[in-house]
Design a protein around this nucleic acid. Structure first.
Length: 917
RNA sequence: GGGCGACUAGCUCAGUGGUUAGAGCGCUCCCCUCACACGGGAGAGGUCCAAGGUUCAAGUCCUUGGUCGCCCA
């Protein structure tokens, strides 16, 4: 193996191999027996129509990091995956496909159409699952669920029936958002408001029995055909005398009343508004208050209906133009104003939504919102970042009823039957489902109408909003409404990670449904998740949402192909600071790729060099067997001793930091900590420091050094595994592992071993790094040939530091490319030399005549000035009794100590400057 | 109109009241040293949007304003 290890990390083959192996071996299957802490999380189910995009990748990376971390810490970990049937989206995909054959779904009929969708689902749906497997998501695929499968269908019916019986689901004729393209009602949340230029038309309505007009202003003149009143504010003196009179609705020649209602904004337009109860939510309210007729002047596809008289059959926008020109011809168009206003469009298809009166199913939300508010406010559910908690509570405060019916064929059909004779609504007898052509449908069909005894019952044709089934996801996937073992073990789930864009659509609704429907005795047992982490969205460099249709989306699989999955994961995680959106940049992923390569090469170095020690009779087993690694660090004599103690001390600190970061969703901090540990500490210092020991002149030293370095590498790999699963898996397998060990993913996450912590090593190493830094700085400034080793002089007053230097002479000389480092008994002579100082030591390298004296003077001056300023400000603060009296003692002491150090440095530099000039 | 957020190095971003505010990339200089040029070493670069305030101490907390986003109505 060592001989074949490639020079650059080549992720492609490695990733595919491990992805397949993890899946085939069912490595991530959760056991619902046993003891110990449980960590469970449900995958936000992607749409079956979807393919993976960078947002999924971000979400899955974050989930997977936490899942792998918990699993490695021995928690009973379940990540439950699944797909959403995605009502509208899926129906559209299939309809579009049919359209190519010039077939409409109506031509096929409902049953045949559903058959086609199922067929599509089998053939084409769920591509995202394969992509997730390929990208290493450590889900328990044996528990995969689909929102339309029988057990979840049953959960939906059960939930519906309970809510219906409790009166929380009702049917009624109200104003809804109608999408004329999707030909279905949609919920308020599915309407997005876009600011668009528009016009405000001022129309004259003749007052009956006079020559006067009332002028109304409207952005939608075509709806005037359905006007059933005009309204003014009750206190508006301009119009009081008209209240109770009638105006003649132009074009329709219909007399409609002038009413007074406080809803009217006196400042808007003329202060008179037309009232169209069937086509405007506010007018609808006014209409109900005043008992006005509701005239729907449109059809399902937003053409004018028979109720629109001679305009029937026209598209709504054609009708608008015709209405305006007809009014103008009659002299009833007062003026046209250009304005900008918010237009509601369908979230999915972007066509203009038509507010329209319609018979639909609704869910009462206020009673459900109250417990949810309590759970969040009381901290039963922790929301991160915290500001999202405010947003969530705010929304719950203003919640409105949810229109849950959709005029689609793909979805959970509403389990209500209508009596053909008396129109009584009869719910399914129970939530049982039966299989029809292999797919679930309601089985509890009522036999006869309980009211009139009629035997002809027809099931409601509507289906439920996709989000209805989604809102049951955390418990329906675990077997609810049955009392299953999974449900008892894994519910409430530990955590939900979702994008903040679906907070209202999904997260909040799950909280409400979980609290209301599940069986726990207390709210704490009924919440669907204990913590809610809202992750950021990935945006384009312009800050816009990624969009496939606009071509601004980034294909994660392509990036993966180019840079490796681990690199992409690392990049996303390293940018995933809570609360701010992510703007992708090529640089970052290149950096992440380089990091992966660095890890690869550090391991490569070890394995390649192992040959040399194998030649000396040491075996891999002796050096790196698991039981050997477990006892690290091994004491090393000689000059590398410090570095060994130090790297394990670093490991202890890094482990604690990573644990803390992951506990708090601070993925970017975990990444940064790991990056610096691996690259700077492990590679740049530790490996470099101990290289000669590894070469094996002294067998005992080599043995211990190798054991330590392999143990450290093994620890590092396990620390890195959650974010870079493939690379670490591959390298882990190159180390000896216990018989039967399958994967690093099932190995232990490092413990933050307190006995590894070693403050004195940390301190000593930092000092030595300063000395090396000083020497390198002189070399670079003097433009010394890097290959040329030079002698240096060293002066310090501290005996400790003197010993430290002596004890670590060899690695010091190598790191700084020095031929020798002479410890001087006296102050160093600045003549003919460059000196670098800290308060603790001076380092001198002699030069010929190569040095730019003026540059050195400039450098000194700049440094002196900076120090002087700093010292002055510190002196000032220390002289202030207010500060010394009130600030904590440690702060004052530290400040004083620092100031004294600065003063020493300052004096040294001043002296040198004097001698130079 | 209501709410939430952002503004820190050329760029993308960290920064949890307390030393001289950090990282990656980019830039400058040197080095293809036998793990890695996807590398090593050394540097330059910041009145932390503005003005007030709280505090012994503010990039960090508060107020107001500016610019730019997002959500809701």
């Amino acid at each position: 193996m060592p001989r074949e290890i490639p020079k650059a990390y080549e992720p492609q083959e490695i990733e595919e191999r491990w992805a397949k192996s993890w899946f085939d071996e069912k490595l991530f299957r959760a056991e619902n027996s046993g003891d110990g802490p449980v960590f469970s999380i449900a995958l936000p189910p992607p749409n079956i129509t979807g393919t993976i995009h960078i947002g999924h990748m971000l979400e899955h990376t974050q989930i997977d990091m936490l899942v792998r971390w918990h699993r490695m810490r021995g928690h009973r970990t379940l990540w439950l995956p699944g797909m959403d049937h995605a009502g509208i989206a899926t129906q559209f995909v299939v309809e579009r496909q049919l359209a190519k054959e010039k077939i409409r779904r109506q031509d096929l009929g409902r049953e045949e159409f559903e058959r086609r969708v199922w067929h599509w689902r089998t053939e084409r749906g769920g591509a995202i699952k394969d992509q997730m497997i390929r990208l290493g998501a450590s889900c328990d695929w044996t528990r995969e669920r689909f929102t339309l499968e029988p057990s979840l269908y049953r959960a939906v019916i059960e939930a519906f029936l309970r809510l219906y019986r409790e009166g929380l689901i009702y049917r009624g004729r109200y104003i809804v958002n109608w999408c004329p393209r999707c030909q279905t009602a949609i919920s308020d949340l599915e309407v997005v408001h876009v600011e668009r230029p528009g016009k405000l038309w001022h129309l004259r309505y003749p007052v009956v029995g006079s020559n006067e007009f009332l002028v109304v202003a409207t952005t939608r003149p075509e709806t005037m055909l359905g006007d059933t009143a005009v309204a003014v504010h009750p206190d508006d003196e301009r119009y009081q005398r008209f209240v109770g009179k009638h105006v003649m609705l132009p074009l329709m020649e219909r007399e409609i009343p002038v009413i007074a209602d406080a809803y009217v904004d006196r400042e808007f337009g003329t202060g008179v508004v037309k009232i169209t109860p069937a086509h405007d939510p506010n007018d609808f309210e006014v209409g109900r208050r005043h008992d006005l007729p509701e005239i729907d002047v449109m059809t399902n596809d937003a053409h004018m209906s028979a109720a629109a008289g001679k305009y029937a059959g026209l598209d709504r926008f054609e009708a608008r133009a015709r209405v305006v020109s007809d009014l103008e011809a009659l002299g009833l168009l007062e003026c046209i104003e250009d304005i900008s206003h918010a237009v509601g469009v369908c979230d999915r298809c972007k066509s203009e939504v038509e507010p329209r009166i319609s018979t639909q199913w609704f869910m009462k939300m206020k009673p459900l919102a109250e417990p949810a508010k309590e759970a969040v406010r009381g901290g039963l559910i922790e929301v991160v970042p915290d500001n999202q908690r405010t947003i969530l509570l705010n929304w719950l405060d203003n919640i409105r009823d949810w229109c849950i019916s959709r005029q689609l064929w793909w979805g959970h059909r509403i389990p209500i039957w209508h009596c053909d004779d008396c129109k009584e609504m009869v719910p399914a007898t129970d939530s049982r489902v039966e299989l029809f052509e292999g797919h679930a449908r309601a089985a509890g069909i009522p036999a006869k109408c309980p009211k009139c005894g009629g035997a002809k019952l027809t099931q409601d044709t509507d289906v439920l909003d996709t989000w209805f089934s989604s809102s049951l996801w955390p418990f329906s996937t675990l077997g609810w409404p049955d009392d299953t073992r999974d449900l008892r073990v894994y519910y409430p789930t530990s955590l939900l990670i979702s994008g903040y864009d679906i907070l209202f659509f999904w997260d909040v609704r799950m909280i409400m449904m979980g609290l209301h429907l599940t069986g726990g005795a207390t709210a704490k047992e009924r919440i669907p998740f204990k913590r809610l982490y809202l992750h950021s969205l990935v945006r384009t460099s312009e800050g816009a949402k990624m969009s496939k249709t606009k071509g601004t989306g980034v294909d994660p699989l392509q990036l993966t192909q180019q840079y490796g999955t681990d690199a992409l994961r690392y990049m996303l995680a390293s940018m995933a600071a809570p609360g701010t959106d992510i703007i992708l940049s090529d640089d970052r992923i290149v950096g992440a790729r380089n990091f992966a390569n660095k890890i690869w090469n550090a391991a490569r170095f070890l394995f390649v060099n192992l040959e040399k020690v194998e030649a000396a009779g040491l075996t891999m087993e002796e050096l790196a067997a698991p039981e050997i690694r477990a006892q690290a660090p091994y004491p090393v004599t000689g000059e590398g001793a410090l570095a060994h103690r130090w790297i394990f001390s670093r490991l202890a600190a890094v482990t604690a930091q990573v644990n803390d970061a992951l506990e708090n969703f601070r993925f970017h901090e975990a990444c940064q900590t790991l990056y610096h540990f691996f690259w700077d500490d492990f590679c740049d210092w530790y490996i470099e420091w101990v290289k000669p020991q590894l070469a094996g002149a002294d067998r005992e030293v080599a043995l211990a050094a190798w054991r330590n370095i392999f143990a450290a590498l093994d620890n590092a790999l396990r620390l890195l595994h959650p974010v870079m699963p493939f690379l670490t898996e591959e390298l882990w397998h190159k180390l000896p592992q216990p018989a039967g060990a399958h994967s690093i993913a099932l190995d232990k996450f490092p413990e933050p071993s307190p006995h590894w912590a070693d403050a004195s090593s940390d301190d000593s190493m930092a000092r030595l790094q300063e000395i090396v830094g000083a020497a390198r700085n002189i070399r670079a400034e003097m433009k010394l040939d890097p290959k040329r080793k030079v002698a240096a002089d060293f002066w310090t007053t501290g005996p400790m530091l003197k010993n430290l230097v002596t004890e670590n002479m060899d690695p010091l000389l190598r790191s700084a490319a020095l031929s020798e480092l002479r410890i001087s008994p006296v102050h160093l002579d600045p003549a003919g030399a460059a000196i670098r100082s800290t308060s603790a030591f001076d380092l001198r390298i002699a030069y010929g005549d190569t040095v730019d004296k003026a540059a050195e003077i400039a450098r000194l001056n700049k440094e002196i000035e900076r120090l002087a300023k700093d010292i002055e400000s510190k002196q000032k603060r220390l002289a202030d009794d207010n500060f010394t009296g009130k600030a904590p003692g440690k702060i004052v002491d530290d400040l004083r100590a620092t100031m004294m150090e600065r003063q020493i440095e300052h004096k040294k530099l001043r002296d040198r400057l004097d001698q130079l000039s």
